[in-house]
Amino acid sequence: MARKQLIRALPLDWPVHITQATNGEEALDAIRQGHGQVVLLDLTMPVMDGYQVLGQLRAEGLKAKVVVVSGDIQEEAQRRVHELGALAFIRKPADPDELRDTLIRLGLLRPAPSTSPVTGVPCRVDPDLRVNFRDALREVSNVAMGRAAALLARVLGVFVQLPVPNVNLFEVSELHMALADAQRGERLSAVCQGFIGESIAGEALLLFHDAESDEVARLLGWQNHGDADEAEMQLDLASILIGACLAGIAEQIDVRFSQGHPQLLGQHSSIERLFQLSNKRWRKTLAVEISYAIEDHNLHFDLLLLFTETSIARLTQKIHYLMD
Rank of each mutant, 00 (worst) to 15 (best):
M1L: 13
R3E: 09
K4F: 07
A21I: 03
A21H: 05
N23C: 08
L28V: 14
A30W: 12
T44M: 11
T44P: 00
M45D: 12
G50I: 08
Y51G: 12
Q56T: 14
E60M: 11
K65D: 11
I73H: 06
I73S: 12
A77F: 03
Q78P: 00
K92G: 01
E98H: 07
R105Q: 14
L109R: 13
A112S: 09
S114F: 15
V121S: 07
P127Y: 13
D128F: 06
V131K: 02
F133L: 11
A149I: 06
L151Y: 08
A153C: 10
V155R: 14
P163E: 10
V164T: 11
L169M: 14
F170V: 07
E171Y: 13
V172C: 05
S173Y: 07
Q183C: 09
Q183P: 00
Q183I: 00
R187H: 10
L188W: 05
G197A: 01
E198T: 08
L206G: 05
L219M: 06
H225R: 12
L235F: 09
A238D: 00
V255S: 10
V255T: 13
L265S: 10
Q267T: 09
S269V: 01
S270V: 09
E272M: 07
S278F: 10
R283P: 00
K284H: 09
A293K: 14
N298D: 10
F301K: 01
D302N: 11
L303S: 09
E309P: 08
S311K: 05
T316Y: 14
K318G: 03
